[in-house]
């Protein structure tokens, strides 16, 4: 089982519901109202950015190359081959921002207050990524690559 997040850019309206639910999910309370008053504001792992009237949610894609893992001087980032996931060990992280420096997608942000990298972990603490259900137009897809291929057959990737 190695599901990944995919985004249907023909549907995304850049409403940023994914950003909101992500940030709340990364807060200590996991409640919107309470999260807003938390001393250290939680940051969203996904950011929606636009180009030529299309909207692109940008988040860690757990890429095969994962330069962040190579760059991690603390051994805090590792690649889990079974889950096809870049894993993060907060206990080892020292907040050196090497991962931010090498992410080819600019998908790792620095949480300066907590000294931790903010990056999508596919909500390992929940059953599925929170952004999935939060998206009002169904632009976020969470599937195994093979399942996606079946779904995509008639369609071409952009």
């Amino acid at each position: 089982m190695a599901k990944k997040l995919y985004y249907d850019v023909s549907k995304c309206l850049a409403c940023k519901s994914c950003e909101l639910v992500c940030a709340v999910g990364k807060s200590s309370s996991k409640e919107l109202q309470a999260a807003l008053s938390e001393e250290t504001k939680p940051l969203s792992c996904v950011k929606v950015k636009s180009l030529e009237s299309k909207n692109f949610p940008i988040a860690c894609r757990h890429c095969k190359e994962h330069p962040c893992v190579s760059a991690c001087i603390a051994g805090a980032l590792s690649y889990d081959k079974t889950k096809k996931l870049v894993d993060y060990d907060r206990n080892k992280c020292v907040g050196c921002w090497m991962c931010v420096m090498v992410c080819p997608y600019g998908a790792i942000r620095d949480n300066k207050a907590l000294k931790i990298p903010v990056r999508c972990d596919l909500c390992q603490d929940a059953d599925e990524p929170r952004c999935l259900k939060a998206c009002p137009v169904g632009a976020i897809i969470y599937l195994e690559e093979e399942e996606l291929d079946k779904l995509l057959k008639p369609k071409k990737s952009v």
Partner: peptide, 21 residues
């Protein structure tokens, strides 16, 4: 400061970008 991957997306080498469909 708002530069993002979207800005450089069409410039960089991305073999087969199967993230955005």
């Amino acid at each position: 400061e708002n530069i993002s991957y979207a800005k450089i997306k069409n410039l960089v080498k991305e073999e087969k970008e199967k993230i955005y469909i």
